[in-house]
Amino acid sequence: MASSQTDSPLLFDMPVRPDFALEAGLMREGHLPVAGLDEAGRGPLAGPVVAAAVILDPERIPEGLDDSKRLSAESREALVEIVLEAALSVSVASICAGSIDETDIRKASLEAMRRAVSGLCTPAAFALADGRDIPPGLPCPCRAVVKGDQRSQSIAAASIVAKVARDRMMVRTGTLLPHYGFDSHVGYATARHRSAIKAHGPVTRLHRMSFSPFKPEEVGLSGPQIGDTPVRIR
């Protein structure tokens, strides 16, 4: 694991909304283009962790970009279409629940970011990653930016793309497994989700069995397998 290079702002340095200052500084140093990286789905009990890499066009930055957690679902859905139309390049990658269980959620999140950067059709000269860690194995230099989705418009765009992509995956999965209510909680540990797990058991290859409450003493039943019915995510 490469050592982390963090960029931790003082509280009074935080912009009200993310801007393009970090990207502009890197571009002045000759790093062009710059990609923003973020992930969605570290905390849920079910489903993949999804990462996105976005290279914004400096001449066509969408208005209203922000940390996806500070936006409504309706705003995210509207903005993701604008980002996909206006950005120079967008890439999405995911790591499934089984792979998360084989490693851990932190490593899986960083690997998803690495795959997202590698999947860009326009290679990035530099990347800005949300958080404290630099994903290992990137094809370009990278800076970790604490609260990056509230500071960098590129990271904010990536956070929106990752969140919407993951939510859509989970809503589609919910049509195949309606008893679990994935369309409402997208895998997070809500009361409804926990009740469904107790009633029907965890779903093989969908629930993260390394997470609580999936301990041997807590769950003794095995629910349906997500592979029982083909799942197609658009």
Rank of each mutant, 00 (worst) to 15 (best):
L177V: 07
A87S: 15
L56E: 08
S152Q: 08
E85G: 11
Q225D: 15
A144G: 08
V186E: 09
K163I: 04
L120A: 12
V117N: 11
A112R: 01
S159I: 04
F182G: 09
E111R: 14
L37R: 02
S154T: 08
V92L: 01
L176N: 09
D167V: 02
R132K: 13
T103E: 11
G25Q: 12
R232D: 14
V117K: 12
R132T: 13
K147Q: 15
R151F: 08
S109Q: 04
I105F: 08
D149C: 06
V92W: 03
R143V: 07
A165F: 10
T103L: 13
D57Y: 09
E217T: 11
M113Q: 15
C142F: 03
V80W: 05
E111F: 06
Q5N: 10
P141D: 07
D66R: 03
P48K: 02
A127I: 02
R17I: 11
R205S: 15
S152T: 05
S184N: 14
V203G: 04
V80M: 10
M1I: 12
E29R: 13
A196V: 07
L128Y: 05
D101H: 11
P9A: 11
I197G: 03
T173Q: 07
S154G: 12
G148E: 04
C142Q: 01
P202Q: 00
V90I: 10
A46I: 02
C140R: 05
G223R: 05
A40H: 01
R17V: 13
E74P: 06
A196Y: 06
L128D: 00
R114Q: 12
V161D: 03
V117R: 10
D13P: 01
D101K: 11
P18Q: 04
A156M: 09
I233D: 06
G64C: 03
K163N: 08
E102A: 15
I82W: 07
F20H: 15
R70P: 02
S89W: 10
S195F: 12
R17P: 03
I134M: 10
A46D: 01
A124S: 03
A116V: 01
G187D: 09
V50T: 05
A52C: 08
K163Y: 06
H200E: 05
A2E: 13
F211D: 09
R194Q: 14
A199G: 00
D130L: 09
R17D: 05
A2D: 11
K147T: 11
L71E: 07
D67A: 00
S68Y: 00
E218W: 05
A116T: 05
A191M: 14
P33Y: 08
F126Q: 12
D38T: 05
A51L: 00
V54P: 00
S154Y: 04
T204A: 15
L71A: 07
P15D: 02
S75A: 14
H31M: 07
A199F: 02
A87T: 11
D67E: 02
L176E: 12
V83W: 06
E59S: 15
V146N: 02
L22Y: 12
D228M: 06
L84V: 00
S152M: 07
E217I: 08
D66L: 00
R60F: 11
